[in-house]
Design a protein around this nucleic acid. Sequence first.
DNA 1: CGCAACCTTGCCGCACACGTGAGAGTTGAG
DNA 2: CTCAACTCTCACGTGTGCGGCAAGGTTGCG
Lengths: 156, 156
Amino acid sequence: MTDTTERPPESARLLRIHEAALDVGLTPRSVRYYEEVGLLKPAARSEGDYRLYDETDLERLRFIKGLRDDAGFSLAEIAQLLEDEAARERGHAAFHATTDPDERRRILCERLASFDGQIETLKRKIGRLQTMVDETEARRARTVARIAELGAGETC
Amino acid sequence: MTDTTERPPESARLLRIHEAALDVGLTPRSVRYYEEVGLLKPAARSEGDYRLYDETDLERLRFIKGLRDDAGFSLAEIAQLLEDEAARERGHAAFHATTDPDERRRILCERLASFDGQIETLKRKIGRLQTMVDETEARRARTVARIAELGAGETC
DNA sequence: CGCAACCTTGCCGCACACGTGAGAGTTGAG
DNA sequence: CTCAACTCTCACGTGTGCGGCAAGGTTGCG
């Protein structure tokens, strides 16, 4: 406000697709594809129709990449999670649009069910992975015991 | 050797592909595909070249299905895990082929490193999923609090 | 031995998740 | 204003993970 050097007001730092993709570790093609299948829309477009991404978009992209890489979710599953999220935000709006306590309670209860469903989905995956970890650790422990039986020697 | 009635000696209960697939919840096509990409080979073939699967094969198939469905691993990643397992079994053989304690120790240490790598891979996935669960549960808790603020009413 | 039900290999097709140009337009530094 | 670098929208190509069909062979009950 006090200087004339055009300083983007922090909230308006927009990146073009290449920079945005680099930032989150994806390719421009993937980012466009995610838009194609409805996972996100750039915050804005330039005069010449270039896609422009803000920090919110980047977080969304990181979210998508995390689910894809780390959890092995398909884009369809990710779309479902994002859809649930959107539904909750619509619920948020509906919540503020009414003052009826019963209605408000109903909205919050829906939101609760949505969270619960998501948590259960994630926990099932964790449970399966944990079982595998447990089995592997048990076998690792047996190997450690056998090394100990071999007697001294600190090579590992 | 002592009787002429061909009685499968318990260890030789072999299933054809359709039964095997049904048993583990896959399709015959998938099972053949897994063989095509080197994930398993049937324990035997019949006179007419029918694939015959034993209990070990079934467990391997269940292992593959679990990783595919629950953990979202690609067949290539599963192949890697199975490859590591095979390496450990080769180590097992090598272990019994020698009596040199140093050699034996080296073999066991390799096995240990293999287990550790696998455990780390799995735990990274779990960590990511757990982070998501934590975030979702925190938001769920805020929703619960807001419902409580709305006062009485046990509808959910 | 006949015959239905199952199996074989081979091959084409499909959905997903992008990669890779082609051809045209945009941006911004010099 | 020029020009390299970037971006746009089609549009076709690619690898994965199977589905499905064809043409023929195998099994095993009756």
